[in-house]
Design a protein around this nucleic acid. Structure first.
Lengths: 229, 229
DNA sequence: CTGTAAACCTGACAAAAGTCATTGTTTCAG
DNA sequence: CTGAAACAATGACTTTTGTCAGGTTTACAG
C-alpha cells in the first residue's frame, strides 16, 4: 500500500535513484488516500493546490474551460500519473480542472515534501526538469496537430492514442470509456461532428463498438488517415 | 558586451541570484556570438544541439513542419530569450526549427556549462523548472485557443499578442514585421484566409498598415472579437 | 533603372465543420 | 419496473475555412 504511492512519484518523475530514502519516506508518510466517484471533481480550475495528486486507479480528465463555454480536455491521467505538479512548482493556481472519468483512487501528497526535495536534491530536480521538458515538447506536437489536422484526422489519432496509452481488452475494446462529448472535447470539436465521424468510422469498419465500448479494428486505415492518405 | 550575454541567461531563467559568480563567468567565457541574416536558419528540426542560443538582437521564429507540408510557428523569440533549452535539458534532438525573421545577433552557449550548473546548483535548477512549468501552462492555453477559437479570433489575438510582447513605435506600428504567410503559420490557417481577414480588419479600421508594417488601431474591438462578442 | 521573383490580393468554388431541431436509446434512482 | 435525464444519432441547413486560379504590387539583384 505504502510503496505503491512512492512509485507514483518515482515513475512520474523518472527518478528512482534521485530521491533519497528519507525523502521518499517522508513523502510516503504524509500521503492521504481518497476515493473518487465517476464524474466527481478532484480539483477545479483556479484553485490553489497545496500538494499534488497521484492516480492509483481509474482515469481523470484534465480540462480547461474556454471562452465559448466548452471544455477542452488537455490530458487524460491514469495509474501512476501525477496531477497538479505545475501548479505546485510554479506556485500559481491551477489552470486545469481534474474530473474523474471512471471511479478512482488517488493519493494526495502535500507540497512541502516535494518543494523541500526540489531545493535539496539537485538530481531529483533535474529529473523533474527533464520530465517537464519532455511534456513541453509533446505540447508543441499537440499544438501542431490541433491547428493543422482535420477533425477526422484528430479523432482517428485519438483512438490510436487511447489504445496505445490505456490498452485494450482481449476483444480489442479500449480500457477507457469516454462519452462522445468527452472525445469531442479531447479533439476540440462539436459533439455532433464527433458522433458523425465515429458513425462513419464504424460503417467503414475502422472501429467497432459495443455499448459504450469502442475498439480499434483497422489500425492501418486509421494511421493512413492521420498521415494524410 | 560580456555582461549582456550573461543577462540573457539570467533573464530567461529568472535567476539572477541562483547562479553563482563562477558559474556565470564560465558560461560567459565560453560564449560565441553569431550574426544571422533574415531568412537564415539557426538550427533545424531534428538536429542535436550541443548548447543553447540566446537572442541578443532581432527576432526568430520557432516552427515545426506538419505532415501536410505547412510550418506551424510555435513561438517567436526576441531579445533576451533562450532557444534550445528543452533539447539540451531533455537530451533529445530539437523538435523545432529556428529561422531569423529579421537580421539577428545571437550567442551560443555550450551545454556543458549549463548541464553542470543544473546538477550542482539546486536553486538555479528550481528556477529553470519554474520557468518551464510556466511555459507548459502557456502551452495549454495555446492548445485551447487553437481548438476552440475561430481563425478570425486567433488573428485578432495574434496582433494584440505581438503588440504586447514586441511593442510598437510612436505611430503605433508593431516592432516585428511578419509576412502574411508567417502570420498564417502562427495562427494555423491558410495564407489566403489570413490575407482576407487582415483586409477585413483594415476595412473595419481595427488595424492599419503601411508597407509591410501593421499597427493596432482599435484594441477594444479586437479584444471583444477575441472574447466572442 | 529594369526584369524577375516573391509577396500580396481577390474571386469563385468546394469542402469541412458548426448549429439547431428532432428522435431514438440507455441508464439509473426511486 | 418505470419514467426522467443523460446520451447518442441523424437530417437540414449555415457558416467557416480551404483550394485553385488568376491577378497586382513590391523588393531587389544585376
Amino acid at each position: 500500500m505504502k510503496n505503491r504511492c512512492e512509485n507514483c512519484i518515482v515513475r512520474q518523475f523518472n527518478s528512482l535513484r534521485a530521491m533519497s530514502k528519507e525523502e521518499l519516506k517522508r513523502v510516503s508518510d504524509s500521503k492521504i488516500t481518497k476515493t473518487i466517484k465517476k464524474g466527481q471533481a478532484i480539483f477545479e480550475e483556479g484553485e490553489k493546490l497545496n500538494g499534488v495528486f497521484c492516480v492509483r486507479d481509474g482515469v481523470s480528465k484534465l480540462s480547461k474551460l474556454s471562452a465559448n463555454g466548452k471544455d477542452q480536455i488537455v490530458k487524460l491521467a491514469s495509474k501512476g500519473e501525477v496531477m497538479g505538479q505545475r501548479s505546485v512548482i510554479a506556485e500559481e493556481s491551477t489552470n486545469l480542472s481534474a474530473v474523474a472519468v471512471s471511479d478512482m483512487e488517488v493519493c494526495f501528497i502535500p507540497k512541502e515534501g516535494i518543494v523541500d526535495a526540489l531545493h535539496k536534491n539537485p538530481n531529483f530536480t533535474v529529473e523533474v526538469l527533464r520530465h517537464m521538458a519532455h511534456d513541453l515538447r509533446e505540447a508543441d506536437d499537440v499544438i501542431v496537430n490541433m491547428s493543422q489536422k482535420t477533425v477526422k484526422q484528430r479523432i482517428a489519432e485519438a483512438f490510436l492514442y487511447l489504445r496505445d496509452n490505456f490498452g485494450a481488452d482481449k476483444e480489442g475494446f479500449l480500457n477507457v470509456t469516454l462519452s462522445r462529448e468527452d472525445i469531442a472535447n479531447v479533439v476540440g470539436t462539436a459533439t455532433e461532428s464527433c458522433i458523425r465521424i465515429i458513425s462513419e468510422f464504424k460503417k467503414k469498419e475502422y472501429i467497432k463498438t459495443s455499448g459504450k465500448k469502442i475498439g480499434v479494428v483497422d489500425e492501418k486505415k486509421l494511421r493512413d488517415l492521420v498521415d494524410g492518405f
